[in-house]
Design a protein around this nucleic acid. Structure first.
Lengths: 202, 202, 202, 202
DNA sequence: CTATAACCGAGACGGTACGTCCAGTCTTTGG
DNA sequence: CCAAAGACTGGACGTACCGTCTCGGTTATAG
């Protein structure tokens, strides 16, 4: 949420109302799921949460920031950590998990909304990159590095590009909507990528 | 958006003013380039174009539709058709051309704006898919099919997935902005993809 | 409004379309009666009459002018001429007739609309005065003069003021709506006025 | 329009801004006087008052309501209360005062505008009746009742009709503009009315 | 019998104002 | 000092009409 500071020194005055915060994030998430980003307004959130607009502005700089917090609140628990498998399997498990979250939990719409809004709001874009994308890439990077160490992929690989090769296609389908995020798609995608990243057969 | 139908039957009443149409698209494009989608308002376009708001609403259903027409007007001439080369070269040329258009002609920001707006506006999303993405994919598909015919890539390939493997990464970097759209990126991307799509070495 | 010049020299070109004119006045009257002056728009009249807007503007300068013509067309036949009776009876008959037209033929609303619009449109005000009020006053003046000649009212009377004494109350109730235009009202009104205008009893 | 209720219970939230209210009414009055009801727009008032349109719409339902409040603000202090005189003198003083207000203080135009607008806007019509006409009639009614008690006018008189006999003529000349609101007119009018309302000479 | 002119319907045009919504800020009362 | 309530300025929205202006097409008179 906006801050980070771990409430070091007990400050004067009334403390932040945790109930209000939770109420705001719940209201935000339910509005996002019901109506998408259109119709996602600060006034609407305040009304549904039973909260003054100023209370929202005190803690979040923009509607996108609220949406991002609500999204992370709802979605952080859902994504798995890699288990001890070979590289193709690990990659397939990771991508499948992400696609399923997008497809099954009405989360895809929220991600679309957030990335759409981020095209207009640079602060949101940065926050989304740092708090969502980068967190996921950290996990992904570990998987690729381990695969490099065990010789399952080339060691002159640009890992950032390799990650984008796989996940770019997923986000592209999510955002452009020209093709479905099917399990077959994930299978082929991982297959082509694994081959493309493998060491030269010589 | 505006038409499509080739004005078959002469209609009654005053005819559409081509000068106004051009003026609107120019104004729209220049506002998009100057200020991005924030600050891209119907009122602003009307004012800069010297046109009544109603004239815009008469022909376009939303600001996104205006932006799309303006974008296509400006960008259609810039993208090349494939020449007679081997598959890796053709792919590299195509992807490089797209990335350069995004990078060099202030067009990247417009595409970001359009795709961002499309997350909220389903009509715009459909139009963007049909009139931009699909047009580009048609070219891309031909390249992949030719490569298939000449045995440069596997013939059990899902071409749609293959296209997304390459172009997804480009759009992902454009929209998420976590890494630059550099020429090195394009080089590696095409390299990994070509390997991944190649026939089994056996 | 509509005419004036009695078609002296036959002019070149297509002549005025009488059907269109009638259609416009009918449409105007029916819109006035249905919706009042709010909702009485040139576009609405043109649409209902099946006529181009320009055709209306060619012949009338404003919506008020159309309304006035439509009103006079519909109402001129309804008001009676004075018969050969004594003054109080003549006055009562005249006022009663006017009040009944206002009450019974949905004409009251149109007069209210016209006088309301005239507060804003000086040309309409002048036309309404000349073509309606003055026409009615001419009849009224004759009645008062005859009464003066026969000694039924004072001969030092200011006839204009006397007319306003009677008709002013009627129009006031029509426009302000604070009291109904009942027959009892007319009776009392004429009674008080006749007494007030009578010669001194000495 | 705005309230009336004497702010019984102190409410939560920011209180109504008296400066904004005054600024709106001043702007409204000055626009009315300068340009009449044509050119009297909510946007114009907001601009001149330095106020958002929503602030006007929050407190008044229509431009007519604003005009009425501005009018009453400006005019309430100007009309006198009856003094201790005989009936004809009292009536003459009252009518003369009203006519002078109409003539001399640019208030006539505003009343014309209000009554014109009221022909189209029923809410305004009701408010104008209750807050202006009825307030004036209350004073007038007292004068007539006192005259009845002292035998200066008939006691079977319909006072409402009697009031309209006098004031109807004034408003008629104001609204129709066919004759001036001169002092001679007032003199004759009161003279004829007083005679007409007097008890039978027997 | 052809020009020329004024008419007609339709409807696009540049504008103005509407009334609504929301943004982001400010000012109250009250916990 | 925080929270709720809600009034404030401001700006864009999408709509409705305004009055003007082309369009293609239709009667009329004049040559």
């Amino acid at each position: 949420m906006s801050d980070g500071a771990p409430a070091e020194r007990r400050e004067r005055g009334r403390t932040r109302d945790a109930a209000a915060t939770a109420s705001i994030l719940n209201a935000a998430m339910s509005i996002l799921v019901e109506k998408g980003l259109a119709g996602f307004t600060i006034e609407g959130i305040a009304a549904r949460a039973g909260v003054g607009k100023a209370t929202i502005y005190r803690w979040w700089p923009s509607r996108g920031a609220v949406a991002l917090d609500a999204f992370l609140d709802a979605v952080q628990p859902l994504v798995p950590y890699p288990e001890d498998e070979d590289f193709p399997t690990q990659l397939r498990v990771q991508v499948t998990a992400l696609v399923r979250v997008f497809r099954d939990h009405e989360v895809g719409g929220v991600v679309r909304a957030l990335m759409g809004e981020a095209q207009t709001d640079p602060d949101l874009a940065a926050a989304f990159r740092d708090r969502w994308l980068e967190a996921r890439r950290t996990v992904g990077r570990a998987v690729f590095r381990e695969a490099q160490r065990t010789g399952q992929i080339r060691d002159d690989l640009d890992i950032e590009t390799a990650i984008d090769l796989v996940y770019g296609a997923v986000y592209f389908r999510l955002l452009a909507g020209h093709q479905p995020l099917s399990d077959e798609f994930v299978g082929d995608l991982v297959d082509y990528a694994v081959r493309g990243l493998a060491p030269s057969s010589t």
